[in-house]
Design a protein around this nucleic acid. Structure first.
Ligand SMILES: [Mn+2]
Ligand SMILES: [Mn+2]
Ligand SMILES: [Zn+2]
Ligand SMILES: [Zn+2]
Lengths: 125, 125
DNA sequence: AACTAAGTGAGAACGATTGTCAAAATCGCC
DNA sequence: GGCGATTTTGACAATCGTTCTCACTTAGTT
């Protein structure tokens, strides 16, 4: 059974406090800066769990880091991410969902998953 | 000026010989298995150059590896990739191109780029 | 309180990628 | 063909994000 620890709560809360996407390392640094003695490995584990449970979105940055963000909308969705400041807008992509399913089926691919993220420069940047 | 070396030619050729996406390490292993004394760092450099020059597609796998593939169709396109055997189909995504541009503009994002890849299990797997 | 399985964390280990730098190879030129 | 300036190579070290190890702690149960 999954146990409730102050560490997981702290990660959850720190992630929400941050607006956009953060790396595990940055979140760990932020937590320590606030006096928390939480371990780095624990932050990694908590974030991975949150992502699995659908409570956080995750994506890899262009330089290979895994970034996490407290999920605001439930269910499947995609992201519009500012490549300068990290500001993120969650977007629906109804036309894409169907398109992905169709193109997979048309080529004999089963169990399709897709990665659809749009990067750009936001109006503030 | 860019010099022509047998190493770059070998990487180019090995990449074409492979059908789908390969990691630098795997391609290096394949080259060595064929008797080539090429160095690993050189394979990394050659692949990066090919990608920059538009002669190879690149993407990061879900576990963070950079994968490369000899580009067959010129211009912008997307991929349908078998997560089991790496077989890749290049696909057009006309509906997505327009959708991405629209959703970026609607949210005030400039200079939009998008990542659209569909993963699945191909009919042979 | 006692028990037990799950969770934690400091540090080691890992793995893909990049940096270093002396030796080797390419290209333009004579 | 030979020369020299410049680029490229490759063995190896270094980086860096992430995962593993394992002794210790703790949540949840009885
Ligand atoms: Mn999201
Ligand atoms: Mn392609
Ligand atoms: Zn921005
Ligand atoms: Zn396949």
């Amino acid at each position: 059974m999954k146990r409730q620890t102050w560490q997981r709560a702290a990660v959850r809360e720190a992630l929400s406090a941050r607006g956009g996407f953060v790396s595990a390392q940055d979140l760990h640094t932020a937590l320590k800066a606030n006096g928390s003695p939480i371990g780095l490995a624990t932050v990694y584990r908590a974030l991975a769990d949150l992502a699995v449970d659908g409570d956080a979105d995750s994506l890899q940055s262009s330089d290979g880091e895994n970034l996490y963000r407290a999920c605001v909308s439930a269910g499947h969705h995609h992201h519009l991410i500012c490549r300068s400041c990290g500001r993120t807008v969650e977007i629906e992509a109804d036309p894409i969902e169907q398109w992905a399913a169709e193109v997979a089926a048309a080529n004999g691919f089963r169990d399709p998953r897709h990665v659809v993220d749009v990067f750009g420069t936001c109006s503030s940047c």
